[in-house]
Nucleic acid binder design. Structure first.
Lengths: 148, 148
DNA sequence: TCCAGTGTTTGATAACAACCAAACAGGCGG
DNA sequence: CCGCCTGTTTGGTTGTTATCAAACACTGGA
C-alpha cells in the first residue's frame, strides 16, 4: 500500500520542483513499484517532507491527475489510478536516453574518458541499488531530499 | 581560434536556456577545448544558431563575464578570458556525478537493469565521441540544437 | 458528535525566464 | 566616409514557478 519511495529533488538542477515530483512518480509507476490503488503521500505530508509549499505539491498532483496517473480523493488521500497509463517502452527509453545524453555531453565537453564515466555511473547506481528489494514489507514513506 | 563546439540545448529539460549555455561553455573551458583568447560565437550569431532571443545570450555572456570566464569586447566579439577560472577537479567531478545521479535515480525507479544503463551511456558517448579529434583545424562554429 | 487528517479553493506576492522591438555605439576594412 | 560586423542599453510584455495565508469541505475513527 505504501511502498518505500525515494524522491530526489535537486533544487540546483533548475528543473521545476513540481515537474521533478511528477516525473519520478511516473517512473515508479513504470517500474511497478507504484501500482494501481497504492496510496501516495498526502499533499501536506509530501510538502513537509520536501520542505516545499503545499501548493507546489497540489500543482504536481493536479497535473498527474489530469494525465490520469493518480486520483485525489477528498478527505482520503491520493492514490495511483486504477488504469494509470504507464510510460511506454519507448518513453522509458527516451527518458533514460535523455539523461544519458546529458551525461555524455558533459563528459565529452570536459574530456572525461569513457571508463571514468562508466565508473561514476556504476557508483551512483550502487548507491541507490541496495534500497530496493523488500517491496512486500509495508513501510512508511521515506522521502529523500537531495542533490549531491 | 574557433574550435568546433556543440552546444546541446534541451528545451524540454526545464533548465533555463541561458544556464545550459553557461554550463557547457564552462565545461569546454574545463576540457581545454576552449582556451584563453579563443573567440566564441557573437551574441547574434549564437542566438540565431540556437533560435533563441539575443537577450538570452546576452544574459548568459554577461553572467559568464561576471564570473571571469569570458570577456566581451565592444565591436570585436566575445573571448575566453586570459585568466579564465576553470572548474576545479572536484567541481568537474561534482558536475559529472550530478548527471550520473539523475540517470541512476531514473533507472532505479524504472527498474532498468544496470547493464542496460551502461549500454545506453556507451551509445550516447559514442554518438558524440567521433566529433572530437582534429582540434587543430580551424573550423567554423557548429552549434547543435537538440535534446533527443 | 468531535476531531484530526485529507483534499479544495482563493487571492496576493515575488522572482525569474524568455521574448520582442528599437535604438545607440565601438571596431575595422574597403 | 561608409557599411557591416560587433556589443550595449532600454522598456515593455508574457508566462512560469513558488511562496504565503486563510478559509472551506469531505472522511473516518474515537
Amino acid at each position: 500500500m505504501t511502498p518505500k519511495l525515494h524522491l530526489h529533488i535537486d533544487e540546483r538542477s533548475g528543473v521545476p520542483v513540481y515537474r521533478q515530483m511528477m516525473d519520478q512518480i511516473k517512473y515508479y509507476v513504470a517500474g511497478a513499484t507504484l501500482r494501481p490503488g497504492d496510496q501516495i503521500p498526502s499533499i501536506r505530508e509530501l510538502a513537509a517532507a520536501l520542505a516545499v509549499n503545499p501548493t507546489t505539491v497540489v500543482k504536481a498532483y493536479t497535473e498527474l491527475e489530469r494525465e490520469g496517473v493518480i486520483e485525489k480523493r477528498h478527505g482520503k488521500g491520493a492514490f495511483i489510478a486504477p488504469e494509470a497509463p504507464s510510460l511506454t517502452q519507448a518513453e522509458q527509453e527516451d527518458a533514460l536516453r535523455r539523461s544519458a545524453k546529458q551525461l555524455a555531453v558533459e563528459a565529452t565537453q570536459m574530456h572525461v574518458p569513457t571508463p571514468k564515466v562508466i565508473t561514476v555511473v556504476r557508483e551512483e547506481l550502487s548507491a541507490l541499488g541496495p534500497v530496493r528489494g523488500d517491496e512486500s514489507e509495508p513501510v512508511k514513506f521515506a522521502v529523500m531530499v537531495g542533490g549531491h
